[in-house]
Amino acid sequence: MARQVARDIPDGAYVNLGIGLPELVAQYLPEGREAIYHVENGLLGMGPDPAPDAVDSELINAGKKPVTAIPGAAYFHHADSFAMIRGRHIDICVLGAMQVAMNGDLANWSTGEPDAIPAVGGAMDLVAGIRTIYVLTQHTTRDGEPKILERCTYPLTGRACVDRIYTDLAVIDVTSRGLVVRQMAPGVGFEEVQRRTGAPLFPGFAGSAA
């Protein structure tokens, strides 16, 4: 899945990778392409994971994991970092999801349960400020419940903000006419993807009618 996302990142893009699965995308960027990774806690130019003896507790990513900085990286304070996001300077954001709706609504910060500790971080800023939002997620929950729905039931992170969804089953575009399946994982058919999705899908892959 992460490799699939990496293939869709163009040369020269400035990219913000969310916590969790999206962090894997950087290692799959195809040879010959250069992308600059933005870390919203204050680094432009995130490099590969550090060697165990080179961990620096003051050089971390948004998930508070140690990272490295590439030659040519820059550090900055939080208001500058979010000016990059809000000012439309970051091209692509790859985020995890709890739920995505057929109109592109995203819920990825809270289940809304009464005893949950609400914690939002930068998710709402990212989806409001970055034009291209890719979601990278398992197609269903651990219990097999669909995460792609007609309407989100969890509190929203943002409305109509998701452009494309990458799952273990398919790549799905959010379009004005609904959810369009662009690609399916090897051995997976359209009917299976539809069966495990809580919203209507349209075929839009090579060989399909659409």
Partner: peptide, 25 residues
């Protein structure tokens, strides 16, 4: 939201009483 928190602090320090943002709409 984290970016709104940062901008609220930046604005406060710059003598700006309030601002508008699309975050959290």
């Amino acid at each position: 939201p984290q970016g709104t928190l940062a901008e609220r602090i930046r604005a406060g320090g710059a003598g700006i009483p309030a601002f508008y943002t699309a975050t959290a709409v």
